[in-house]
């Protein structure tokens, strides 16, 4: 299982791979991934590669990713080329009309991508007083609902609870639930 996780520095995308690694290790699986640290973290485009299984290299090759998690819509669209045929894309969206672009629709059809747009930013604004730092837990909730990761929702949720700092545990679990409930029908 190969993941590409993208967003903007500061959105907490590294938390997602930590959670996935935590679950994988508890099941005795090997993990390997690549993160961005340092200057690029300062509000710029960030990409995290994460692989579960016996891989030597930490990097996912284009057209090999099973799952794309996008914390920001633009970053998601920029990295769709990583998706393999039949892959799953979970995108935090603020401009859903972009998904009607005819060329994008043609690409998604040709690649047989399962696309799940999630309005995470709006949900956090409306349901959690605009605490956008919990977007990572929300995305993981949506991933759990999609079933695409092959991990049980209960395992993912438990890992979020275990890895979240104690003082933010409740909020993280709430955001996870919001994401879980938010998943639209398959498109």
């Amino acid at each position: 299982m190969q993941f590409i996780i993208v967003g903007i520095g500061g959105q907490g995308i590294l938390f997602a791979s930590r959670v996935l690694g935590h679950v994988a290790l508890s099941k005795g699986l090997h993990v390997n991934g690549s993160e961005v640290h340092g200057m690029s973290q300062r509000g710029g485009s960030v990409i995290s590669h994460f692989k579960i299984g016996s891989y030597a290299s930490p990097l996912v090759r284009a057209k090999e990713a099973d799952i794309l998690l996008a914390f920001e819509q633009g970053e998601g669209l920029r990295n769709f080329h990583f998706l393999k045929k039949g892959g799953t894309a979970l995108v935090n969206t603020d401009r859903p009309e972009a998904f009607s672009d005819p060329d994008l629709v043609a690409f998604l059809r040709a690649r047989e991508v399962r696309l799940y747009p999630v309005e995470g930013t709006r949900l956090l604004r409306e349901k959690m007083g605009g605490r956008f730092l919990f977007l990572n837990a929300l995305i993981l909730g949506a991933l759990a609902a999609s079933g695409a990761s092959g991990f049980e929702a209960v395992d993912l949720k438990k890992a979020v609870a275990e890895l979240a700092p104690a003082r933010f545990r409740e909020e993280n679990l709430k955001a996870f639930e919001l994401g879980f409930e938010a998943l639209p029908e398959r498109s």
Binding site: I8, G9, G10, M39, S40, Q41, R42, G43, G44, S45, G74, E75, L77, R78, A98, D101, L104
Partner: peptide, 11 residues
């Protein structure tokens, strides 16, 4: 859609 790499910025 005018997508480009977002450069890092000061916080």
């Amino acid at each position: 859609l005018g997508l480009s790499v977002k450069k890092p910025v000061l916080c």
